[in-house]
């Protein structure tokens, strides 16, 4: 997909159903982010929020490229990733409210979504810590002889962490079925990539570890899907790991309510021109893939889903106080002492 909303007719694209789903996931991530931030501003939601605005296209592409048996490790900026795995928005939002109906019974919070059945194995609140664990999941898949791939998502900031580089090396050394998906939004917390890396070309840096490594325009969901699809197919067939650097831009502050005044205006304006969901809409309509009536239907469905998710979360009961001491150990008998 080009900036003007055109795509090369010869290039592969997902099916119409998948394209509709991608568009709905992008809208749902945006709606979830915006409503959660509004709830937080009103004081009704006490949770750390890390908006995915800017990454929606990457998340939607992941959702189509990944297969049902593939597994994912995400980070704290995880709403889009979780939706891409088909996790219902209602359980994600209920977790944000710390309610029993959440993915982790309200015990994890926004930074710790888990849904093993849908292949979201874990999400970490620690920058860069998902990568070593992805090596282990890759090892498990390889030992199983399974045709499943492991995706670990992380921001550009994570590439500064030492253990990320340990993980790149080991995944390459052991030819593991891991796809490292860098959601490069150009900001490590409040510091721009150009200020924290002498070589800001992350794909170039990772290529030196001996694995396939490339950059893709993360604001182009079709290009991103094609790149991820290739990397995942390669991983599943024993071809080893890949690093995919999806170039995007963070369209909000680092966290839900944080200061964003320091972002250069021209940069942000240029990035907003590339805002994934509106561009996807224009392309779907102008290419004739999805008509305006169907797009309006999808938009109404997303609004209804978001309404229902927040209502469900607010009505879901909090965990019983006894829950505090459950789930610390597989068996709580005699712990810490008897």
């Amino acid at each position: 997909m080009q900036e003007n909303g055109e795509t090369q007719a010869t290039e592969a694209i997902p099916s119409r159903e998948e394209l509709e789903w991608m568009y709905s996931i992008m809208l749902l991530a945006k709606a979830g982010d915006e409503r959660a931030a509004a709830e937080a501003r009103e004081g009704r939601l006490q949770a750390a929020l890390y908006p995915v605005r800017g990454l929606e296209g990457v998340c939607a592409a992941l959702g189509v490229a990944m297969q049902a048996n593939d597994q994912m490790i995400s980070s704290y900026r995880n709403l889009g990733d979780a939706l891409s795995r088909g996790i219902p928005l209602r359980t994600i939002i209920a977790e944000a409210y710390g309610r029993l109906g959440g993915t982790s019974k309200g015990k994890g919070g926004t930074m710790h979504l888990t849904d093993n059945e849908r292949g979201l194995v874990t999400t970490t609140g620690v920058v860069g810590s998902g990568l070593p664990m992805a090596v282990g999941l890759g090892l498990a898949a390889q030992l199983d002889g399974a045709d499943r791939a492991i995706v670990v998502t992380f921001g550009d900031g994570s590439t500064s962490i030492g253990s990320a580089h340990e993980a790149f090396n080991l995944a390459a050394l052991w030819n593991l079925p891991v796809v490292f998906v860098c959601q490069n939004n150009q900001w490590g917390e409040h510091t721009p990539l150009s200020s924290y890396a002498a070589n800001p070309n992350l794909a170039e840096r990772v290529a030196s570890y001996g694995m396939a490594s490339e950059q893709v325009d993360g604001f182009d969901p079709m290009a991103t899907w094609r790149t991820l699809d290739r990397a995942l197919a390669k991983a599943r067939s024993g071809g080893g790991p890949s690093f995919v650097e999806c170039l995007t831009y963070r369209l909000t502050g680092h966290s839900g309510l944080s200061d964003y005044s320091y972002v250069p205006e021209a940069e942000l304006a240029a990035a907003l021109e590339r805002d994934p969901a509106p561009n996807m809409r224009r392309w779907l309509e102008s290419s004739g893939l999805v008509d305006a009536g169907r797009l309006a239907e999808i938009e109404a469905e997303v609004e209804a889903t978001a309404d229902e998710a927040f209502a469900f979360a607010q009505e879901s009961p909090p965990p019983h106080p006894d829950e505090l001491t459950d789930d610390v150990y597989a068996s709580g008998e005699g712990i810490p002492f008897r």
């Binding site: 874990t122 810590s129 990568l131 340990e166």
Partner: peptide, 14 residues
């Protein structure tokens, strides 16, 4: 870090 991290991941992988 990755010896233990990969062990955590492998444990999560069964």
């Amino acid at each position: 870090q990755t010896i233990v991290g990969s062990a955590v991941g492998a444990a999560m992988g069964g």
